[in-house]
Write a protein that binds this DNA or RNA. Sequence first.
DNA 1: TATGAATGAGTCTTCATTCAT
DNA 2: CATGAATGAAGACTCATTCAT
Lengths: 209, 209, 209, 209
Amino acid sequence: MSSARDDGRVARAARQRHDRREQVLVCAERVFSRKGYHAAGVADIIAEAGVARGTFYLYFESKRAIFDELLGRLLALLAGSVKRIDVAPGAPPPFEQLLANVNRVVDTLYDHREMTRVLLRTAPGIDADFDRKLEESDGRLRAIIESALATGETMGLVRPCDHELASLCVLGTVKEVMNHYTVEAGGRSVDRRRLARDLLEYNLKGLFR
Amino acid sequence: MSSARDDGRVARAARQRHDRREQVLVCAERVFSRKGYHAAGVADIIAEAGVARGTFYLYFESKRAIFDELLGRLLALLAGSVKRIDVAPGAPPPFEQLLANVNRVVDTLYDHREMTRVLLRTAPGIDADFDRKLEESDGRLRAIIESALATGETMGLVRPCDHELASLCVLGTVKEVMNHYTVEAGGRSVDRRRLARDLLEYNLKGLFR
Amino acid sequence: MSSARDDGRVARAARQRHDRREQVLVCAERVFSRKGYHAAGVADIIAEAGVARGTFYLYFESKRAIFDELLGRLLALLAGSVKRIDVAPGAPPPFEQLLANVNRVVDTLYDHREMTRVLLRTAPGIDADFDRKLEESDGRLRAIIESALATGETMGLVRPCDHELASLCVLGTVKEVMNHYTVEAGGRSVDRRRLARDLLEYNLKGLFR
Amino acid sequence: MSSARDDGRVARAARQRHDRREQVLVCAERVFSRKGYHAAGVADIIAEAGVARGTFYLYFESKRAIFDELLGRLLALLAGSVKRIDVAPGAPPPFEQLLANVNRVVDTLYDHREMTRVLLRTAPGIDADFDRKLEESDGRLRAIIESALATGETMGLVRPCDHELASLCVLGTVKEVMNHYTVEAGGRSVDRRRLARDLLEYNLKGLFR
DNA sequence: TATGAATGAGTCTTCATTCAT
DNA sequence: CATGAATGAAGACTCATTCAT
């Protein structure tokens, strides 16, 4: 039996444990963003977080594990910000849904610039396992894009084209653009709405007049 | 004084030296492609090449140096395959020049699949120096693209848009697509001409019908 | 805020850290003395100290650094044991001061036989930097000797002679003698007082009857 | 049977072989003198001599061996330049014999400055074997000195003292002085006669007026 | 005999992880 | 829970020596 007082203690302890974890996580993110996965040492992370070496391993299994968690979170957020286009009667017009998607993606990545930078620049090539994870993420996103393309084509909105290639192109434009505007961190702040609109417009209309 | 016989010897020796270097270079490329820069050890490279440790250092200063050379070669080829659009009277039509550019880029990257894979997946984040090199390369390519866009806009061929963003998009589509079709090395062989045409078409016309 | 308990912990930790350092230092001294700088590997040092490879680098930057510290300590002790002759009225007679100097030098070197052996036998030629350090040390010692000679000559105690050469001779006798009696470590123990007296006598009176 | 012509060929070949050896030996001496035994690589020696790697090993067993030979030569010359004092009736006066010895030693060492530098600075500590060799050489020299001291004491020329220590002192003064004036290679050229005289005078008369 | 490409044992150093306090 | 000293596997690089031509 645990008394109410104990419950309080336990709860507080759990909260503290959670907070500590988050703090280390945030510091690790900064460090990974600054130096990349390989150049970042556990020493850097604990220095940034102000905890002891042993403490780090109290909360995380390994350097790989903390990176995994960080990356996983971003990928999950990303996955969550892309919604399938709803073509049910009464749903908002497809273009608006597309724009909303792009806006959410841009926001997500921009809100997590540090980790986005890591994702787009240093995550591939760390590990066969990470590579697989990234490919899965890309695959999921591309599947959604391709289904949207198929719908669009059926509805006569999208010109007939190779959907595989097209989905790659969409992904490529987002990655390259977000990598660019995410890296120039300190510089001029970005107008996210315009960015999203332009990005979408590019993919829809291309360059031709 | 060197006899004709000596000349022959010297020439043969130089050729052999060159061949050996190339051999190690090729093997290193394979290893880097397979494991990425960090996971690849000098041990892997010499095992692949079937030479001794010392032999490696006979031809290359360090692991970094051989990677640098490999990367530098690809970037040079890439730089060489993109030509500025010639708008002088009598020059081929812009579209043909664009397509020729895309064809050359696709060929270059596909001919050097292994290193392209490395370039697109594991090169960023190795080193501040490498990052700078890649950014320079991207910058050069984007400058050419932007100048083409400016020309196109003047000629009324290109719709008014943010050239900075557009050049990023072009780069992004090429990277993502080539990364994709380059990684699936063993699989179905790719129709490069179609790929180039589709890539160009996507960037020019976008998705809209 | 740190509690008294923390203070205790911190103090103990500092002491332990210091002790460990000393222990490795002493072992390194033994190893260097036994094998010389070049033949001595970090492997030998850690084997002697019974610590792991990493532990060594926890306390010292490199093999060179630990050697530097060891050598620096001895040179500092040596510099500290030679005092300028005081000719102020009321100061002890010059001969006594000389003898005291020689006694201190002999004691210092004999108390650190191991490192003295290293200093006199293997330190030169390691490195341009070490050579400079040794030359500086010799230079300092010789400057003191030469000033003593100048004083002695003024006072009519020392015969006119080339002080540069004389200081070299003094240094030479001390080095050779101490090298000899320091190397035969295990053998008959040395009467330091007699050694110092004889050394001084030799330099003052020479061999002639 | 070999014809006279063959004899000539053989002789010429032997001479050539000998010359080549000498040439490499001289170059090695320069290199050892410049960099010390350890820092000097076989690569440095063959570069200086302008021969191929393999050629080096055609004439010398190893880096150690060529150093050994160089050192051995100097030690032999040195041993040859110190002669026992002849007290037979009619022999030159002892002082003259002493001075002649010192002169020969100074000349020998100064004529082979490069190797002397190596001998005095970097030879000890290379190897247990080298150390033994040097000790033997020192031992031989000291035996001669001690015998001279014994004779001198018997003749009432030398004051009673510890001959062991005295022989060390003599050796020490010669080493230190010669090291000094041998190292400052480029500088003012040295008056060897004066050096020898002063050196002898120091050892005989000491510093006292 | 001369060459110089090839060798591989040996050395230093780093850093993710563990564990006694 | 927190700490940080200790660990040792792993990796890059050197260089004296060998050997096929």
